[in-house]
């Protein structure tokens, strides 16, 4: 079921450039379990969209099937949403984006949706460089079907009923890096300070932006043996750099890129400000990011933060050389060649 939230709110809630409060970015009341990490992601998305003054109706919320895929119902009520088929969100989003290149595609998927049934579609949407924000709420477990192990569950861990994860786990960030994603990040639903700037940057990025968000499942995967429980993730999360998002409108003063900070200019003019934690952090080296992820994994750690960013990367419509006007707005005069041309086509068959 879905329940609408009360529209009552404090009269002096802060408004953004569009005159909208954060409540204008909310969705229906969540029906996920109390304490679900996905609700924190929802709230981070709402905050990011509000602070960035995204017109809600210019967003298309895309998802597949699963707990994660229900989440788009809980943010941006004024945006159209599409809860599609299990594992097939990438193809539906591809089609939607082909039809209208001007919308912002915010997609939510899960580990079952992207790493199992939809792994093929995930791989191909990455290589197509679709201009979208692809978020995976990754909890290593199947929620809606009650606790089966997911393909992202670490090899050797047990689920709540004691079933052992016996096969190699799939790391979607590593796959995205290998397949040519131009923005790859990993975060934790419990760390809003890290997550919100990453979502904002993913929105500003032009091209395929991938965000794997560790989002613990309070009901089926929050037990002591889990490597995706709140406690485990809290204790083992590390990052190579703190990434802050500086929007376009904020004047960038000469001293802002002060000691140890690196500024990366995104396509829309906003800045990703990187403050290194480890000296050898390099946001431009995808292969190194893969090595870093694997090395931390060996130590039982989860490497988070911005893993890779190429702000100059291409995207599908550029590769395809599609016309600037969204295809769904071309009129009949532009699309239909008419009877005169048809008669010359007919002549070619005589």
């Amino acid at each position: 079921m879905s329940f609408q939230k009360s529209k009552f709110h404090h009269p002096r809630l802060p408004v953004n450039d569009l005159g909208l409060t954060y409540r204008d970015y909310e969705g229906a009341l969540s029906t996920l379990c109390a304490g679900c990490g996905h609700d924190s992601i929802t709230s981070a998305i709402i905050q990011a969209c509000h602070e960035q003054s995204i017109p809600p109706h210019k967003v298309a919320k895309m998802s597949g099937i699963g707990c994660s895929s229900k989440a788009p119902n809980y943010f941006l009520n004024k945006a159209h949403g599409f809860n599609s088929v299990h594992g097939r969100m990438p193809s539906v989003t591809t089609g939607a984006n082909m039809a209208n290149r001007d919308l912002l595609y915010l997609a939510m998927s899960g580990d079952g949706d992207s790493a199992s049934i939809g792994l093929g579609q995930f791989a191909h949407v990455v290589r197509r460089q679709l201009d979208m924000v692809y978020m995976v709420a990754n909890n290593g477990v199947y929620g809606l079907t009650k606790g089966q192990l997911a393909a992202t569950a670490d090899k050797g861990v047990k689920n709540k009923t004691g079933e052992l994860s016996i096969f190699t786990d799939i790391d979607l960030c590593v796959m995205a890096l290998q397949l040519g994603a131009t923005f790859v990040a990993r975060s934790f639903s419990g760390d809003k300070k890290q997550l919100v700037p990453l979502i904002k940057a993913a929105i500003s990025h032009r091209g395929f932006a991938f965000l794997d968000i560790i989002s613990p499942c309070v009901t089926f995967n929050n037990h002591p043996k889990s490597t995706r429980s709140y406690d485990y993730v809290h204790d083992n999360v590390v990052t190579g750099a703190i990434a802050d998002f500086v929007p376009v409108k904020k004047e960038i003063t000469s001293d802002s890129a002060q000691g140890g900070c690196e500024d990366i200019c995104l396509h829309d003019g906003s800045i990703m400000r990187i403050q290194k934690i480890t000296a050898d952090y390099d946001s431009k080296n995808a292969m190194k990011a893969i090595v870093d992820i694997e090395e931390h994994k060996k130590k039982g750690e989860i490497l988070t933060g911005l893993l890779y960013l190429d702000p100059t990367g291409s995207h599908f419509h550029e590769i395809n050389n599609t016309t600037d006007t969204p295809l769904n707005q071309l009129d009949q005069d532009t699309l239909c060649p008419g009877s005169r041309i048809l008669s010359s086509i007919n002549d070619s068959f005589r």
Binding site: S84, R88, P90, S91, A96, A99, N328
Partner: peptide, 16 residues
């Protein structure tokens, strides 16, 4: 073919 029809449905949903 799953992706082929997914693309078709996504585009039609979006008005192309």
């Amino acid at each position: 073919e799953l992706a082929a029809i997914g693309i078709t449905i996504g585009a039609s949903w979006n008005g192309a």
